[in-house]
Amino acid sequence: MCQECKRRTATVHVSRVVNGQTEEFHLCEACARERGDFFFVLDPGMALQELLSSLAQPVQGSVPVPERACPECGMDYRTFAKTGRLGCPECYRHFHDQLDPLIRQVQGSVRHTGARPARALTPAEPDEVTRLRAQLAQAVEREAYEEAAALRDRIRALEKELEREGLP
């Protein structure tokens, strides 16, 4: 029953953290809307988050739960299994063995193919060289020798740079 009107069935359950205390409200839709407890949901990834939390629960016989907390932030795996949230970027590496299957199940992939920071270009540059080589082959095929020469220069320059950085 709705706490506010004490008439309609409570269908909206809101919990709110006020000064570290969790308060719960059980309201009907009409009263919840009146109080402004209906909010525009900025992040509708909730369904996935719930799935993630359920998957993160330690299951017998699966990959053992690491005892050691993340060296960077001190969060342990059990906390993550409860909240679905990690402590710091380093957690991804520390809990890699547990997280990978989880992420694969939730996201369908474990390999990012999208944008990357402009500054962290170095590891991407072998790809860049590959791409330029393909362009070079095409240019030679088309007998566009001026273009080919320019591409060759860029490839040499890039390779030198990569060598300096100790990358293949």
């Binding site: 990834g45 996935l48 988050q49 993630l52 679905g84 949230r85 990690l86 970027p89 991804y92 590496r93 997280l99 989880l102 992420i103 939730v106 996201q107 992939s109 474990v110 390999r111 990012h112 999208g114 944008a115 990357r116 920071p117 962290a120 590891p123």
Partner: peptide
């Protein structure tokens, strides 16, 4: 925070990658 494999790292793995 960016990881070669996982992309941009987020507090919840449901946002990781892009």
């Amino acid at each position: 925070a960016f990881d070669e494999e996982k992309g941009y790292l987020s507090a919840c793995p449901t946002n990781v990658g892009t």
